[in-house]
Amino acid sequence: MKVLVAVKRVVDYNVKVRAKSDQSGVDLANVKMAMNPFCEIAVEEAVRLKEAGKVEEIVAVSVGPDAAQEQLRTALALGADRAILVRHEGESEPLGVAKVLHKLVEREQADMVLLGKQAIDDDNNQTGQMLAALMNRPQGTFISELNIDGEQVSITREVDGGLQKIRFQLPAVITVDLRLNEPRYASLPNIMKARQKPLDAVDPAELGVDLEPRLAVLKVTDPPVRQAGIVVETVADLVDKLRNEAKVI
């Protein structure tokens, strides 16, 4: 079985981001970038499947600038076999990325696509779902457990009301949630070995995909500063404030 894992280059989760003063976006100057944490979980799951003998090849894919090679190399250090960079400067939107992945699934004859449920930069949570629609294949989203038996996939997904268990057939699209696994560290020897693994770059035009943005960002601002709270003395005070000041009950 061949697995495609999507990997996105985003601002490191430790970094406190700031909106640019012209409100055109987030200030990325001199900011450390990293692999989206959900993508790390997707890579880890693919590697575990390979270690369990259920997957033969893992191909990591990223849509992004040349610098996104860094994140692909990290995926290779974590255990992916090869990587494909689809070169694209500027914003990448879910539909465009889904189209790219769709083309690559066809070209690579992949049986499964693993993605993070969302990226921590724009938090869209759409790419996996759009991809499944384009492929016209089953999707399992926000999964916290994955079992594969031949062509049969059983997953547990985290939904608002609890846990939902679903079974479906490969090929399929799977998006992962935080509790699926704890990703390993990219060890130094594996970082060194990853430098020798194949990393190909393609242009979206070669895949027949147009990544020009369909969405217009009007403005990006810092969240409003939170007002200081107050301590209430009694439950009665609390209820009074909720009813008469906040007017929520």
Partner: peptide
């Protein structure tokens, strides 16, 4: 590679 090692 230094950046990757630093992230680890």
């Amino acid at each position: 590679a230094h950046e990757a090692w630093r992230s680890t």
